[in-house]
Amino acid sequence: MDTFLQIVANGLMLGGLFAIVAVGLTLIFGIVKVINFAHGEFLMVGMYLTFLLSTGMDVHPYLTAAAVAPALFVLGALTQRLLIQPLMSARDEHVQIFATVGLSTALMNLALLVFGADIANTPAHGVRSQVMLGEVRILTGQLWVFGAAILLVIGLQLFMKKTRTGRAIRATAQNRAAARLMGINDKFIYILTFGLGAACVGLGSSLIAPLYPTSPTIGTYFVLIAFVCVVLGGLGSIPGAFFGALVIGLVDALSGFYIGSDLREAVVFTIFLLILILKPSGLFGTRMNLSHVSP
């Protein structure tokens, strides 16, 4: 029983980790409707920035988020403005995907060029210490990640519901043409949303860096999992992405223990396929018209 509780706890913590990556992606995928293959590399860039800042200035990695998140916002906004926006009118929507593949390849290899293939270790500054919840062991850093994911979801949700900009973003997501008729500058909204999505993952990377070794290829694992979480949660739904991530974290941990660690990816992707085929609106999503995605 203790073991089971521990696995569940591990799964939830892992879910928190996936969530903080997936929330940013759901903004980009759900609203700008671009499959951003470079999302994992955004995380990787954020983790290296955290590493550089926290070792260079000898500050707590969490504090670097104040610089990393804005930096990633700029990276995301530039990606949308320079790479995606010019392709929005292209006859074939496929080209955007390949543009992000190119960006992903370029960023990953740039990291290899600058940092080498070796891992970089961000100093832990105490976030690797344990707390006991009954018989269950959890790292303080994992709790911070989990807490931050919840706050991020609540914060974004309030932003979307209560602010003018947030409402404009939602309107654009639902119907771009109608939003434009209402006087919303859709191009600006997309740039903002892409930047915001990247900034979310920037925040996440400052929290994740002290927990995991950073390497140029760290993003590749996260990006597919993050897509799974987003689709599971329902496209464009921020709380959905969070709960989707928790489900995937739990599935991952439980299947790793009960089925075997070599098959857990297969389990995760099979569940993903079942959801995609049987309930494409996602486990937690409201009915969203998928035809918005493709013309």
Partner: peptide, 18 residues
């Protein structure tokens, strides 16, 4: 037990061994 080297979580495997 095998696992992909790119994994970000081995806690289940550790618990299994334990």
């Amino acid at each position: 037990q095998g696992y992909p080297s790119s994994t970000v979580d081995m806690s289940s495997l550790v618990l299994d061994l334990k």
